[in-house]
Design a binder for these strands. Structure first.
Length: 892
DNA sequence: AATATCACTTAGAATTCTATAG
DNA sequence: CTATAGAATTCTAAGTGATATT
């Protein structure tokens, strides 16, 4: 059983000397020397800074010694019983957020599909980590998991990809009549001037014009016909449609100064959550077995926890402590708890609290809601929709635009990810008095709820938010902004991808520069070059400094010494918690100079010290800006993701079914997701579902065998002629005789249920038709079929033959059926395999944020695949600009 | 220069909807 | 038709990076 679970609940880390809540950690003096000498590099070899453990061949993992583990590791939970976690079903295991050592690895795995790579899988540190390791062969990573030969292939491929990138860059510059020289000054100037074109490159405009002309024309036709068809549907009809169609900003060439986001803005403010409704009197939490009567405010907070009893959060000590602390505070403020006789009860011990009555009440409520008829549900929904209606849209510069999160976040318990020190704290109800409204000067200010007023009303035209408040747990600002489908968001999305495409034009120079600077004498330069290398090759995030009161996670610039392990000759193991406390685990063969540098940066530091102690994200970004205005570390992620996608998509051959194309696209998508380390938790009952799916396929194989056995029945000579053909598929051969009996029982059982259900239904019908109920006799009559089945199975098991049900059944027809069955089996098996492979990989994030949507449009056009195979409704809305401006010729 | 503030994008989990296998 | 699995959507936390402040 995974011991990684044990890492979840940790004691709250005390914050020394009441530093200001938001202060970022004070950067200590750099420990690394300012200049690097040859001697220092030489000396590295004499120092014991490398892990010498392990034979070279192995993926054997070096266990970092305890002193270099992050603090987080060494802080052991005060109370922790090992056994409690082992009760958690496999499938509910939490992802390993705790940077477990390899040795803590779960040896038992989530029921794997047959094809699991043996040794490698067994050694994996955790399911999460596995993903990182299992990087697809196409991922631009040099993963040491692979055989030396495969590694070489990979390396070669990576080189190819970069070569291609360099060629592209040169081509771009050549097109601009620029020298292809190294002097970046020239390039920089050009890029900068180019950047003044706010949207697409000027050259593209003409091309786009032509394209969009087409679509516009089409639309006009459609609209006209729609109007004609509707006839007298309404006079404002045409106008309405114009409204809904939205603003095709990508067809305009208007330049904005990039500062002003709007000139007029009207909206209806925000929607507050409904007020708290008290629980029925009989629903009470218990304290030491005694039902408590709580004041309204305290009851609400208790309910927040009570509703979560099945969540993983309640197993987290920090979460419980934080909740309980805040609960007690509210309880005291609101007057305290009473027992059944009205006596005061002093609540002090979390462990004496029992929230199950509340939990059960909420569950019952939910079930009740579930039981409503379809119509009732519809009515309820309509009611809700009517309430939301006023907030759905705003009017920005006269245009109707969709608003995103117009609902004020309801109170609840803060669900911080990973080891967030504040997780579980009470998120208080937001009052109108805390909300600032941003709206046009001319516009009518939305009325605050009766008896309340807004904190303030502002008219900031340089921002896009409509309303704002500060949340109480982390003092973070929450904004109400437009939806992703809005033109404002669309434009900035477009700009993001255009910036990444601009990077194409300079990326080769940047790469040459940092490769050279890997050997620079200056520590600052060398650290910067090394960080650039990691950001570029591994798509690491920038890694801004973080505060004391946040989860302890890192990105590139904030990597700690303990996050990397080095093994000669040039293997680096990255193991750290990144954004959202998602583990990044990767073993990579790096450029030898990078390896040397990392050794140098680690030298004479503690595990908790910063690896890159002389650079910051700001200094790194400042440097990047000198190549290209607006170039920052995050652009590399976008660039590498989209570029990788383009390369992967280009590999997909023409021809084949739509199904094949879809699968191939998803595979390309997966490559990108792995590159970006996008992971997801395995759904609670994944293993169970998987097993069911596998059993279903086995069942199909048996059905296939039965078809063959029909042939055996019709033409017994064949069995002699080709005995192998009549054997069960190899996949079910093992213990077939035992299995098949079990399976047959199951089939009979299923049939029995079916008959029962049918009987009951028929009975209901009889009753509603005013006829007498069916007799028990009738049921028994029907159940006789089961006996028949049983007999047939017995006979089949003896003879290996099945009598066809229908007379007119030719061998040819049966063979046809077998073929169909084979296809069905193959498809189901493929799907199961993919499902298992992707169980921990989140494809959505890269599709939504990193892969230029025009690539998907290009792919669909080129291969004639409907776009909705990849973009669901909301994405099609969000990427409307891409859908209407790209065709099969688009190149990132 | 450090750091605080602000605005915005990116992210996985949780919830709701829906398609389809049974 | 209905239960369920998976897809889609919603929610809000957690990043990045620009700019203001000290």
């Amino acid at each position: 059983m995974s011991s990684s679970d044990d890492d979840v609940p940790l004691a709250i880390r005390g914050r020394p000397n009441g530093s200001s809540p938001k202060s970022k950690k004070a950067s200590p003096k750099p420990k690394s020397p300012e200049r690097i000498t040859k001697a220092m590099e030489k000396r590295l070899d004499d120092e014991m800074d490398l892990d010498t453990a392990g034979d070279t061949g192995g993926i054997g993992i070096t266990v970092t010694n305890t002193s270099t583990r992050p603090k987080r590791k060494s802080t052991k939970p005060a109370v922790k019983n090992e056994s409690s976690d082992s009760d958690v079903p496999l499938t509910k295991r939490r992802k390993p957020n705790g940077t477990p050592l390899k040795s803590e690895t779960d040896s038992d795995d989530d029921v794997p599909l047959a094809s699991r790579r043996g040794a490698a899988a067994a050694k994996k540190p955790s399911p999460k980590a596995e993903k990182a390791e299992e990087s697809d062969s196409d991922a631009p990573l040099l993963t040491s998991k692979l055989s030396p030969a495969a590694m070489k292939m990979l390396q070669k491929e990576k080189v190819e990809v970069e070569k291609k990138a360099a060629e592209t860059a040169k081509a771009i510059r050549a097109e601009k009549n620029l020298p292809t020289g190294k002097r970046k000054l020239d390039v920089r100037k050009e890029e900068e001037s180019d950047d003044d074109v706010p949207l697409a490159g000027r050259k593209k405009v003409a091309q786009k014009k032509a394209k969009t002309g087409k679509t516009t024309a089409k639309k006009v036709v459609k609209k006209a016909s729609a109007r004609a068809g509707k006839g007298k549907a309404g006079k404002g009809d045409g106008e309405e449609e114009e409204e809904e169609a939205g603003y095709a900003w990508w067809q305009e060439q208007t330049e904005s100064d990039g500062k002003t986001k709007w000139t007029t803005l009207e909206h209806n403010g925000v929607m507050f959550p409904p007020p708290y409704q008290r629980l029925p009197r009989h629903v009470k939490m218990r304290y030491d077995g005694v039902p408590l009567t709580l004041p309204e405010a305290a009851e609400e907070v208790a309910g927040f926890f009570g509703a979560m009893l099945t969540s993983e959060h309640v197993k987290n000590k920090v979460f419980c402590d934080n909740f309980f602390g805040d609960f007690l505070e509210v309880l005291e403020e609101s007057g305290g708890a009473q027992g059944p006789d009205g006596q005061d009860v002093d609540v002090t011990d979390f462990n004496k609290c029992d929230f199950t009555p509340m939990f059960e009440y909420f569950e019952a409520k939910r079930e009740e809601r579930n039981q409503l008829t379809v119509q009732q549900k519809k009515d309820l929904k309509a009611e809700r929709d009517a309430l939301e209606e006023p907030y759905l849209y705003c009017r920005l510069d006269g245009r109707k635009e969709k608003v995103g999160n117009f609902k004020v976040e309801p109170p609840g318990l803060f669900r911080g990810r990973g080891e967030h020190p504040k997780t579980g704290k009470l998120k208080k109800r937001v009052m109108p008095e805390q909300v600032t409204i941003n709206i046009g000067e001319e516009a009518k200010v939305p009325a605050p709820p009766p008896g309340h007023k807004w904190k303030s009303v502002v008219h900031k035209q340089d921002v896009t938010w409509l309303a704002m408040w500060t949340e109480n747990v982390n003092d973070n600002v929450k904004y109400v902004m437009l939806a992703a489908t809005s033109s404002l968001k669309g434009q900035s999305d477009f700009k993001k991808f255009e910036k990444a495409r601009e990077l194409k034009g300079v990326v080769d120079i940047i790469r040459k520069d940092y490769e050279r600077e890997l050997r620079d004498k200056s520590m600052v330069v060398r650290q910067r070059a090394t960080a650039m290398y990691l950001i570029d090759k591994l798509a690491l995030r920038a890694g801004n400094a973080k505060g004391e009161e946040e989860a302890d996670t890192v990105g590139c610039c904030s990597l700690k010494v303990s996050n990397i392990t080095l093994r000669k000759p040039n293997l680096v193991t990255f193991d750290f918690l990144g954004k959202d406390s998602i583990r990044y685990y990767n073993e990579v063969a790096v450029d030898p100079q990078v390896f040397t540098n990392l050794r140098l940066f680690k030298a004479r530091k503690d595990g908790a010290d910063e690896l890159f102690d002389r650079i910051t994200t700001q200094s790194l970004n400042k440097h990047l800006t000198s190549y290209l205005k607006g170039l920052t570390a995050k652009v590399f992620r976008t660039y590498n993701a989209s570029w990788t996608m383009q390369i992967e998509l280009a590999k997909i051959p023409a021809g084949g079914s739509v199904h094949d194309k879809v699968a191939a696209y998803h595979l390309a998508n997966k490559t990108v997701a792995v590159l970006c380390n996008h992971q997801r938790g395995v759904p609670a009952n994944f293993a169970q579902n998987m097993q069911r799916a596998i059993d279903r396929v086995k069942g199909l194989r048996y059905q296939k065998l039965r078809l063959k056995r029909q042939i055996a029945y019709l033409d017994p000579k064949r069995v002699k002629k080709m005995p192998d053909y009549f054997k069960p598929d190899p996949e079910i051969q093992e213990d077939f005789d035992t299995w098949v009996v079990e399976h047959q029982k199951l089939l009979i059982e299923q049939e029995r249920e079916k008959i029962h259900r049918k009987f009951e239904k028929d009975n209901e019908k009889q009753v509603s038709d005013g006829k007498p109920e069916l007799k028990e006799k009738e049921l028994n009559e029907r159940l006789k079929a089961l006996k028949e089945m049983e007999k047939e199975f017995e006979k089949e098991n003896k003879t290996g033959k099945v009598e066809p049900k229908t007379r007119s059944c030719s061998i040819e027809k049966i063979e046809e059926q077998i073929k169909k069955m084979d296809e069905k089996i193959k498809k189901a098996e493929m799907e199961n395999h993919v499902k298992d492979e992707n169980k921990t990989i989140a494809l959505g994030t890269s599709k939504l944020n990193y892969i230029d949507p025009r690539l998907t449009v290009m792919f669909c056009n080129k291969h004639n695949v409907p776009l909705d195979k990849f973009f669901p409704k909301t994405m099609r809305d969000k990427f409307k600009w891409a859908i209407e401006s790209a065709d099969e010729t688009f190149e990132f």
